[in-house]
């Protein structure tokens, strides 16, 4: 970089962000694949068998990252939607729209892997307890956001409506997070907290490797999706005629 000062606002313009996003996809996608393989290796070949839950605990390595991603991505989506609404920034609204499907997928994965873990650990696939119910609500919020946006033809109106829904729904995220403390629950407490670290180091390593993989994957996929959204929304823009797919 020859120029020391980077004009960050430059990349708030879809025309400038579009090629940059294209270049960044492999920078996140390739490390995501590497961390995923490493995490699976550590999770299945290095981490020992749990003395209480046997091999079934290995679901944790993907269940916890999926649940965290569902929550992180929701907050990120709401922030982008809020910025897009408050500052009339098109790109921020497009980012919110690009994040929603990936967040919904991770939330769905948290629910499914949780169910597959609940069956051997608790003897049931599902219980209507606070954490499970609030996570189900999180998935409905994502689905609501996606369907609300796609039901309104005027894109900027759709963005504003989506922003209201996303921002109101943020209240659900701390409810999910603290639900295991606030209510009696079948669900075990926080796996990682300030005072206790209840895992063998290799177990934690597998979980954090997969968490890193999920983060990088999400960034790559969201960048790819936001480029299609830019393409769709800016079809009429002159720069689009010369942009590469």
């Amino acid at each position: 970089m020859s120029n020391r000062r980077i004009n960050w606002y430059k990349y708030a313009a879809p025309a400038n962000f579009y090629p940059l996003a294209g270049k960044m996809i492999p920078l996140f996608g390739v490390p995501a694949a590497i961390l995923f393989i490493l995490g699976m290796y550590v999770g299945f070949f290095v981490a020992p068998t749990d003395f209480q839950q046997g091999e079934s605990y290995r679901i944790l390595f993907i269940h916890v990252p999926a649940a965290w991603m569902g929550m992180f991505l929701y907050v990120l989506m709401a922030i982008y939607a809020g910025i897009g609404w408050a500052f009339n920034a098109r790109l921020a609204s497009m980012m919110a729209q690009a994040i929603a499907p990936t967040g919904a997928i991770f939330t769905f994965l948290a629910l499914v892997t949780g169910s597959l873990w609940g069956r051997p650990a608790w003897g049931v696939w599902w219980v209507w307890d606070a954490r499970l119910t609030s996570t189900l609500i999180l998935m409905f919020l994502y689905i609501g956001f996606i369907s609300l946006q796609s039901s309104i033809d005027d894109v900027r109106r759709a963005d504003r409506a989506g922003a209201v829904l996303a921002l109101v729904g943020v209240i659900n995220v701390p409810i999910i997070y603290f639900s295991v403390q606030w209510w009696n629950s079948l669900h075990q407490g926080a796996t990682i907290s300030k005072n206790s670290f209840k895992m063998a180091p290799s177990m934690a390593a597998a979980m954090f490797l997969l968490l890193g993989a999920c983060w990088l994957y999400s960034i790559a996929v969201v960048l790819a999706r936001v480029r299609y959204i830019i393409r769709e929304r800016e079809q009429e823009a002159p720069w689009m005629a010369e942009a590469a797919v």
Binding site: E55, I59, L109, L116, R119
Partner: peptide, 18 residues
Amino acid sequence: MGGYALYVWGSYGVTFVL
């Protein structure tokens, strides 16, 4: 997987597929 094959491989399978 110590008798938990359905649950463990099911979890990673659905993750991979999605």
